[in-house]
């Protein structure tokens, strides 16, 4: 198991370096207008040149990459060019916000999709058909549209939930929960639709296998067959889908944060990309890559723990 984790960690480190390098080259090659955007329309060519020198943009691209990487390895991700906020502080403030939303959404997706998927696979008939139709509908609805409908109904019309914003858990647990209800619901509807179908398919496949027939022939109760044996074998594809959902939800959170004015990593990324705030963009990309890599690693380890065949492979 340790060798398995070690191999995964090395692959992860390589991935972080490659993606950070590519992002750096893409982002820094488009910084010709940054000084003008920062200093405004009346800045003279001398002032623009001085600003470029202050930001290090007058150096060759590889030299800039070297400086950034050296600082990043020492934990210094730089300072936002547009808000003067240290990048590590900006990320530290916003990461818990996005994670609150995404982790809750993944947990709820797992719970609901397993429930729906198993029910559809085991019961079949009209329940299966209804769940399938709902899954297709949920998958087809864009999450930003769902978010807007939820806001109009629950916030503007009924006034029972906040339309925008985020409250820290330490500040008020009730307000924290209230602020997350609609954003999480917007994310969960789409992701559940997709995951429930995968769980249904996996459970049906497992239930058709020979060992399940043998278990039934030995007189094991249907409940035990399902929960102790079939679900464990169906967990691998379900876990893979959930890890993909986590990554998809991080992407979905960018739009949802915008709709609900939630100050998370998504909002930070959009603003940084629109302004050309490269230090922030780099910091966010590296953070997200590390996050995705960790999630994949955890899923790999859990899959190996659940099913030893995966470890051997």
């Amino acid at each position: 198991m340790f060798r398995f984790i070690g191999r995964r960690l090395i692959a992860c480190a390589v991935l972080v370096v490659v993606i950070a390098g590519i992002t750096f080259l893409l982002a820094f090659s488009g910084t010709s207008n940054v000084a003008r955007n920062l200093l405004g329309e009346s800045a003279t060519p001398d002032q623009l040149a001085a600003k470029n020198a202050e930001l290090g943009l007058d150096k060759p691209l590889l030299a800039q990459l070297g400086t950034w990487a050296q600082n990043a390895l020492h934990g210094d991700l730089g300072i936002s060019w547009f808000t003067n906020e240290p990048v590590s502080q900006a990320i530290a403030n916003r990461l818990p916000v996005t994670l609150s939303m995404v982790v809750l959404a993944v947990a709820l997706t797992a719970l609901i999709s397993v429930g729906l998927g198993v029910a559809a696979a085991v019961r079949g008939g009209w329940l299966d058909r209804v769940i399938q139709v709902l899954s297709v509908a949920g998958f087809a609805l864009p999450n930003f549209w769902v978010a807007l409908v939820l806001v109009v109904f629950f916030s503007v019309t009924l006034g029972v939930l906040p339309a925008t914003g985020y409250v820290r858990l330490s500040e008020s647990p009730g307000s924290w929960a209230a602020a997350l209800v609609l954003p999480v619901a917007s994310l969960v509807i789409g992701s559940t639709a997709s995951a429930a179908q995968q769980v249904r398919g996996a459970v049906i496949d497992v239930l058709r296998q020979d060992f399940v027939r043998t278990l039934r022939a030995r007189g094991i109760s249907p409940r035990s067959v399902l929960f102790r044996h079939a679900l464990r074998n169906a967990a691998i594809p379900a876990l893979t889908v959930l890890s993909l959902q986590f990554i998809a939800l991080l992407g979905g959170a960018v739009v949802i944060e915008k709709v609900f004015a939630i100050p998370g990593l998504g909002t930070l990324t959009i603003n940084a990309a629109l302004q050309g705030d490269v230090p922030v963009l780099m910091g966010v990309v590296v953070t997200l890559v590390v996050l995705v890599v960790i999630v994949n690693l955890v899923i790999d380890v859990v899959s190996g723990w659940v099913n030893p065949k995966v470890r051997v492979q």
Binding site: V152, P162, A163, G165, A261
Partner: peptide
């Protein structure tokens, strides 16, 4: 003062009394 770069979010915030 709450920064809200998205117009829809600003409208929803004021309509809902936030």
């Amino acid at each position: 003062i709450k920064p809200m770069t998205d117009l829809t979010a600003r409208l929803n915030a004021i309509k809902s009394g936030q």
